[in-house]
Write a protein that binds this DNA or RNA. Structure first.
Lengths: 194, 194
DNA sequence: ATACACCTACTGAACGTTTGTTAGGTACAT
DNA sequence: ATGTACCTAACAAACGTTCAGTAGGTGTAT
């Protein structure tokens, strides 16, 4: 692995942990066992490094969902598979997820467009298509958004949710969360809406 | 309004905007038109100021929902009213909402407990009760969580969602979001689950 | 083969600025 | 006179950034 890749990989983890202004170039340099100036040899400044790290983290998430769409399952099963994959990706790559969260929080319009078009567009379109197939009379965008929102919330709010009454340990198992969301959405789609 | 309250009120807004390490004591001092030392007269250090600001922001959200629970509506209508209030609160007090998000992101277990018990407990219990009433055979915690998660996601991801295909401008109107979520959940509850 | 030029990857030390924090003092209440 | 609220000015430390320099590899002319 090249130094540049090592810097980017480490930067993802540390930016996700500490945020942009929370991570100093010296801390990053120490973490990759290089001098500060060596980082400046590879990147013009801190901001460019951050942006490249975000892009770097985005670059390998496409193929996880491909097998869901390409499977010969029914539309309902595909929806279940997608939800399960979504949760798995978020749970496995928590650094990526946290970086995402920070990006969304900052809500820079330009970067939001980059994110939507450059990263998630394919998956969202597939999901949109699936929802339309399952319930043509519903607002597909709203439903698709709900699917993603539900999955996202369960992952990121788990530390908080644990402290509410009614919580069970099975609620942190991905298959339980996925099954609940899938049920919720599919049941809702079965009922004709005004 | 006392200086201390002015400091806390401004700190909430600025911490929400820039994060803990993103806001310097000098910036805060300038924003409240005081010297840095004056802030240190009221608070021992930056961390204590932050914690007190978070508590300060938490202190006035209880009564918004009271009228929903105390209304003589049906359970279904109450759920709709709760969801609508939830969205309104989040939209109106975006600083509070962003501070919350940052807290959740940091996920300090101790603070999560403080949040759950000291701030949201009453509302969550009411919601739990409502869900149990509407669908006794379902996992009330999971359903209640879904309600909150859906509302939260729509608010915080709107800048991203705008860039996906199928988005309509009506999707940012609180009554549309509330109606969609209410429909989704109520429809789902009507169907008996395995 | 060898000297020279040139490249990339990197270092150590320093630049000026900003950071959190504090000491000492003033103005004005009680 | 005692305390509260605030100031200016300074502290050391950490910050992003730059600069001169070096070690090692590669290609080229002699």
């Amino acid at each position: 692995m090249s130094s540049k890749e090592k810097i980017l990989g480490t930067a993802i983890v540390l930016f996700a942990q500490k945020g942009y202004s929370g991570l100093s170039m010296r801390q990053l340099a120490q973490a990759v066992d290089l001098s500060v100036a060596a980082i400046y040899h590879h990147f013009p400044d801190k901001n460019a490094l951050y942006l490249e790290a975000v892009r770097f983290a985005f670059s390998d998430k496409e193929q996880v969902f491909a097998q869901v769409w390409e499977s010969g399952c029914s539309a309902e099963e595909k929806l279940g598979g997608f939800i399960r994959s979504l949760i798995d990706v978020m749970l496995q790559d928590r650094d990526f997820h946290r970086l995402m969260q920070r990006e969304i929080q900052e809500a820079d319009p330009e970067r939001m467009q980059l994110l939507a078009q450059g990263v998630f567009n394919r998956q969202f379109c597939f999901l949109l298509q699936l929802v339309t197939e399952l319930a043509p009379e519903q607002d597909a965008h709203l439903v698709a958004t709900s699917v993603i929102g539900l999955a996202k919330y369960y992952i990121e709010c788990q530390p908080l949710l644990k402290n509410f009454p009614g919580w069970k340990s099975e609620h942190e198992r991905p298959e339980v969360i996925a099954a609940h969301i899938t049920n919720l959405v599919i049941n809702s789609l079965k009922v004709k809406t005004a």
